[in-house]
Design a binder for these strands. Structure first.
Lengths: 350, 350
DNA sequence: TAACGGTTAGACAACGTTGTCAACGACCTG
DNA sequence: CAGGTCGTTGACAACGTTGTCTAACCGTTA
């Protein structure tokens, strides 16, 4: 029996025990402890029991970092997740779906918020790489994702969500933004509207551009002169959207229907319509579902995305890549869905 | 100049470069690379530049895991965060505040969801410990947190949020649940209500019990016979709350005011009141703020918690402990706030 | 010029683990 | 009973990094 390490003797409870300590207590070699802890074969039942008892007694936990340092493949069983903000409910749903899909494989998730800041994107990616994550799932913000190219060429699994990457050929999981925009247009058209307006987020955001494109193209196909459709963009918060909506309502020839292409924009539009007493007069279709949309007066009709499906798919892609899938990168599109609740079915008012 | 490692020669782009590779390329010893990378003094400007150039060229990133293995103190610059669910907006706000407070110190956050499952609590704590997190911030679920005692006695910083731990003396950051409940009661009393009802979550949740206690005690102080106040508990989702509210409304002597002690319960109550056409008749005060509460008809009066302050405080506590604060553990209480929006100011209807 | 102090540099061990391998004894097999 | 196979076991090196220590070199100073 090897002697206890003097560190262990000195400060039994404070110092975290190592395999050495367990081995000493159980009276075996440390490789035997390693085998027991990792459920490897080739250990007699008698020693297995002694080791497990020692593990219990010392409250020992393997150090995964040390293990993965030596282990072939060097998996850390962790991934990095970069979201617009962990406080954003849409991001939260995605996050949860990813967590659930990866938990089964024992993979833990580092989460961080980007706040639309390209510098943060770079810094956080670097921070995760230093921690040797097994993969990266991220919402691209920067103009180009070229900064991850070295990693990508080193076979680090990377999956983009919500938006497709620029300057890099990699897996992506996105909503069908253009189709969703078209769906909103078609719905409003089918209710007889001809004077429609578009309210959208900043045009440097790819999803916003896609939604706008889908919406306007559908109007074009139906013979609406697109140049006559007011499109107010660059709305990145509720207040801007509220003011923009008031402006629309006060215009010479106000729209009878509005498509708001993002949650905060929808909130601003709802508020303005309420303030103008036009909630039941001007039709509204939003993009992206939110809690209590059905409890509003009227209920808010919208194009719902499926964050949980985006997250699940993204997790499946990253797992496939981690498992060695070498197929060409692709883009997976999660269909959106029209949810009818009242605000989108109001008829044109004149 | 030492020779390039053969691994590096063979597979330049695939294999991740190590300090050895950088050292070889720069023609210096690896310790010099270590000094440059860690901004340690004692390196001539000439070599510093050569090393940095090599780092750039190889796209080298230090391996924090390997570093912290050797480094005295063994900090991994990561913490574990256990929340009810990362998809829950309240949790998301807390998460964000914690992330922001820790990012300044370069600490990354592992986040995971508990789903009210004590087994998950234990398993996830263990998973984080195997990754050697520098600290743990968690919402306790299990009846007792004794399972973390070994770690706590090893000086692992642990901060509990939202609920206080059982069977363990550790830092906690919570809302003033009882005071908030009392505030709701006082508000409804001040508007003349005498027939009040309580709708609450499962009684095994500490915060739910506290809110109920505060509410009922305040009623008692004002001379309302508490035994006559209907208190329906065990409501853990919106549907249960909706049904319970209908039951209340249909009772012989229906309440003129309701206190719903949790978000989902509030949603269920709102829905039932709307269905019964009683939204503007029965007063409602909820616990916990939510998006668009002011857009409802009427606006929903409620006791708002401050998740961002809870998160910030929790982060400050864990940092203090990481930095060696040895003071006695304590509980920090974040005050709640009454937000008046209409539903809580309806007068009694008879 | 010898002795000294300060700066720069790298060799080496160590962190806690796992992969490799050789040694050991028990058990066959011919 | 010699030789072989098989299941156990632990010594040892290695993973990529940092702490320690000594060596080499520089410029001073007596």
């Amino acid at each position: 029996m090897t002697t206890l390490s003097n560190r262990y003797q000195a400060e039994a409870s404070k110092q975290r025990p190592t395999m050495r300590d367990v081995a000493a207590l159980a009276g075996v070699g440390i490789k035997t402890v390693s085998r027991v802890v990792n459920d490897e074969p080739g250990v007699s039942e008698a020693k297995r029991v002694r080791v497990l008892r020692a593990v219990e007694q010392l409250n020992y936990q393997v150090d995964m970092a040390a293990g993965s340092l030596r282990r072939t493949g060097r998996r850390t069983l962790s991934i990095g997740l970069l979201l617009p903000s962990v406080a954003n409910p849409f991001s939260g749903e995605i996050h949860r779906a990813i967590e659930d899909a990866l938990a089964a494989r024992g993979i833990a998730v580092f989460a961080a918020s980007l706040d639309d800041d390209p510098e943060r994107e770079k810094a956080l990616v670097a921070a995760f790489l230093r921690r040797r994550v097994d993969g990266l799932i991220l919402t691209p913000i920067a103009k180009s994702q070229a900064h991850v190219i070295p990693e990508h060429s080193r076979d680090l699994p990377i999956v983009f969500i919500d938006r497709e990457p620029n300057g890099l050929d990699a897996d992506a999981v996105v909503s069908d933004n253009a189709t969703g925009g078209a769906r909103a247009a078609a719905h409003l058209l089918s209710h007889g509207h001809t004077r429609l307006a578009y309210l959208g987020d900043r045009t440097d955001i790819q999803t916003a551009r896609e939604r706008r494109r889908g919406f306007l193209e559908e109007l074009g196909r139906s013979g609406i002169p697109v140049s006559a459709v007011p499109a107010i963009e660059g709305l990145h918060d509720e207040e801007a959207a509220r003011l923009a909506t008031h402006e629309l309502l006060a215009s010479r020839n106000p729209p009878t229907a509005i498509f708001s292409s993002q949650n905060l924009v929808t909130f601003g539009a709802m508020r303005a319509l309420k303030e103008a007493g036009a909630s039941n007069k001007v039709a509204l279709v939003g993009f992206d579902d939110f809690a209590l949309a059905d409890m509003m007066e009227p209920g808010i009709t919208l194009i719902a995305q499926h964050p949980e499906r985006i997250g699940k798919l993204a997790a499946e892609r990253i797992l496939a890549r981690i498992d060695g899938d070498q197929s060409l990168p692709g883009t997976w599109v999660v269909p959106s869905e029209l949810i009818v609740r009242g605000s989108g079915e109001l008829p044109p008012f004149d």
